[in-house]
Each structure stands twice: as structure tokens, then as C-alpha cells.
Amino acid sequence: MTQLFEDLSGLADATTSRRAALRKGAGIGLAAAAASIPFLKPGRAYAQSTDGDFGILNYALTLEYLERSFYRQALATGFIPGDVTPLFQTIENDEAQHVLFLRSAINGAGGTPVQYTDDDFSFDGFLGDFASIATLAQGLEDTGVRAYKGQAASIMNKDYLTAALQIHSVEARHAAAIRRLSASPAGQGWIERDQPGAPAPIAAVYAAGMGDMFPSEDNVTQGGVDLTAALSGYTRAEITEAFDEPLDMDSVLGIAGPFITGDEGDGEED
């Protein structure tokens, strides 16, 4: 848990730099806002936990709030075509349920869940047409998959771990369904290499994180061995598609942070 606590201590006193970073405007990027999200203030969630699980759950909850807000704002634009509106409604509902589930889990264990409203998130630049909406949806879902995966080995409580895995795979279902909307060949829901053709605003989603444990989605080394050498009969693209990569908390927050424009804890649950 050492790394987690280092991450948390970095978060606690970075409010000033966060505001500076956010003034640059919303957008995905590994910006200076990386370690500047205030969802884990001293005295709130993680300080009540002896094992760090509350911190991870609140991190997950923050990402779920962000996704929920995004789908609600996206549905409100009217730009989502009728034939795929049911998919976006399904995903919005799942994200809303994830928020409720995580809040309940944290409350039930005696922790304090973070609280955001839909207005605490701004997606300016991504809500002007359906293509932009679909692009950001894919980026956020793929980020969510990497984020949950990146914390699995740090969750101590086995029931929390199982629940996180149950959410993680639903996020992956979302990610694939969104990806299918624009995939070529049609229907492919997996990440080929580090998606060199990704639209610029979401390219960072597929890049390497911090340290050896978080390679890019182009990684072919699993368990210490290069599978392009160890296995025969498969293309590099197929090998990269067959494994999704985890991402560390700082890198995830570098991607998600610029969209968090409001303050945690100053509004009512909605």
C-alpha cells in the first residue's frame, strides 16, 4: 500500500496546482493536473481506513460520477442517434448504479464516500456532435477499464475485490459496445496495439503509465516474457488485443482530472 499512500499524500496538498491546470480548459491529456484531484482529502475517506481500500473505492466512485455525468450530459444534447440511444441509456444507468453501489459499500463499511453532482464535470469540446461524444465515451470507458485493473492487486478486502471485478468487466462491456460504433472492420471491440489511429484527444488513454507495471496497450510482454517470441502463430496485433493493460492512479487522474471542474462535497446527491 506504500505507493497508494504516496499517491494520496500527493493529492492532499495539490489543490492550488489543480486549479491552475483546470484553467487551461477541459480535454484529455497527461497534464499537470495528474496528482491534483481533491477527492481524497485528509479527514475524509482514506483517513478512516486502515488498509487503503476506502481510498481505492472513492477513487472508483469519482470515476463513476464522472462517467455518469458524461452520459447524462451527452444524452441531453440530442445528438445521439435514435438507433443507438438505448445503448447510451443502458450505460448511463449502469454508471448511475455503480455510483449508488459504491456509495452504499463505503457507507456500509463506515467510510465516507465522496460526493459530486453532475454539474461538477465539464466536457466542453466533446458534446458538439455525435462523433465527439462517441470518441470521448470510448476514451472514458477504456480509461475506466485500465483504472479498475490498475487497483485490483491493491484491494485488500476480498469482497471489495470481487465487487470491483464485477464493475470492471461491465466497464469493459461498455468499452467494447462503444468501440463497435466506429470500429473498422465493423464490430471489433478490442484494442489493437496502442490504437495508433486513435483520435488525438484520446490517444493518451492507450499510452504507458508510470513505472514498469503500467506499459502501454501495445505491450506484448506478459509475466516477463515477450509473447511475440514465446508463442507462435499469432500476429503482434492479435497478442496486444488479447490483453488489456492496467493504468496507475496518477495517470488515470491525468486523463480524467481536467473534466472535474467543480468541488467535491459541496452539493447534494442527485
Binding site: 479498475y148 471485478l165 470492471h168 469493459a172 471491440g189 488479447a242 492496467p246
Partner: peptide
């Protein structure tokens, strides 16, 4: 975890 999310994408 790296594999299960790919299974979920398939599903």
C-alpha cells in the same frame, strides 16, 4: 484482470 476485460469485450 488483463484477460477478463478482453473476455468481457468479447461478451
Amino acid at each position: 484482470g488483463k484477460i477478463v476485460s478482453v473476455e468481457a469485450r468479447h461478451a
